[in-house]
Design a binder for these strands. Structure first.
Lengths: 233, 233
DNA sequence: CGAAATGGTGACGGTTTCGTGACAATTCAT
DNA sequence: ATGAATTGTCACGAAACCGTCACCATTTCG
């Protein structure tokens, strides 16, 4: 989720101001003070989004936008332009050049972050939204809902994510550390036994619907979601 | 591609100036010097876009905009307002009344043409104007009205838009940022919790009509409009 | 057989999230 | 201009959720 944002702004003070705000919002910020160094940075690795000042030395912001749009590799790169207040015309020209959005200076940090997120969200074509079916279960990620024979299974957020992971990685054993990594996130630190508790809660939620044995304990190894082995004593 | 543009401007010299510029840019220009003759022209044939001066004799430009937005036939008609320089309030009022954009006088021909093209490009799609029915609700976008069993449901503007969005995207969870994005608009910045309040108001408005459970909260994720499963704990 | 290891289970605070009522600011119609 | 309606924000409390622990059952292995 930590998106890389490349900020191109020639005024060092403003650049830092923006960078600090974005980093506080959880973004990873790359800095550039002119278009050329920005292009150089892009050459190494594509960021997830670019924030470009309208006024830049040498190659102007809008020129940079146009150039990025011409290149195949950077064509789909989300771009946001920073324009000075009152430059109404610039907005139109900027959007025509191919920017995804613009922010007028001065701006509030909240507004900037909101715009950023909006653009990032819009560009992503929602991956992993297919409905999953296995072992009589029907999990719909978009609706965030689990059904078994038309009946809704009541699940908490963590249980839902856990089941989601199990269903996307069935028929194999996952250790507790692995589950913590994939379901809780690699930055979270919780006890391994917490997994046990949530597995139990998930089992308890499935039981009333006649489903049991789907999640199996592999002693000394971890847990496994299995449709095949679901019916044994 | 030669779009018909109806220009409403009471000052003959300015009207001609605009007309000449637009025609040079390839538009077909219709002229009117007051709101009434403009309405008469529209009665015969709808233009593709209207350029309306703020100050008009008798019926003012903003009144004309409001009136056009009320009529079903002209609701989707792209409108651009011409305002005097520095009249910041006018801009807000104009956009609120339903104009798609505004241009401040004096303006450069190039700017005017750019705005016109921009507005035409993102012309309102006629889709999403058909009557929606779901879960005992009947929503008419054109009439901006919601019925349940013939009875009118009293909704504020925001609640209406919220319900409209829900009904056009049912059976899936929408996060608060997503809802702010789609219902409030990209360029509005309000607290996320504001969504909660409006969801509550919407629920409160539906309840007296025997409808409950249609809008479900999904803890940690957002809200969901669901017709099926509307009756569970 | 007994000790150690492993996992199931129930319960308990702490935290997060959401519903709700109130409020001030603003807009709109009269 | 006055009053009604709408909107965004906040504070408070209820409820849901989470992580942890203690305790017990079962398995493993000396």
């Amino acid at each position: 989720m930590a998106a890389n944002v490349l900020v191109v702004e020639d005024e060092p003070a403003i650049l830092e101001l923006i960078a600090v705000n974005l980093e506080q919002a959880g973004f990873h910020v790359l800095r550039a003070t002119d278009a050329e160094s920005a292009l150089r940075l892009i050459g190494e690795a594509l960021p997830d989004l670019m924030l470009i000042d309208w006024m830049l030395p040498a190659l102007s912001g809008i020129e940079l936008v146009r150039r990025l749009r011409r290149e195949e590799r950077t064509r789909a790169l989300p771009l946001i332009l920073l324009t000075a207040r009152g430059a109404e015309v610039d907005k139109v020209l900027g959007l025509e050049a191919g920017a995804d959005d613009y922010v007028t200076k001065p701006f509030s940090p909240r507004e900037l972050v909101a715009r950023l997120r909006a653009v990032l969200r819009r560009r992503r074509p929602e991956v992993g939204e297919e409905v999953l079916e296995a072992g009589g279960l029907r999990l719909d990620p978009a609706a965030r809902r689990v059904l078994v024979q038309g009946r809704v299974v009541a699940l908490g957020p963590t249980e839902f994510r856990l089941l989601h992971f199990f269903m996307t990685h069935p028929e194999r054993v996952h250790s507790r550390p692995q589950l913590l990594d994939r379901v809780w996130g690699d930055h979270v630190f919780v006890e391994e036994r917490t997994v046990d508790v949530h597995v139990r809660r998930l089992r308890a939620a499935l039981e009333p619907h006649g489903l049991s044995g789907l999640i199996q304990t592999v002693r000394g190894a971890g847990y496994r979601f299995s449709v095949q082995m679901a019916q044994d004593a």
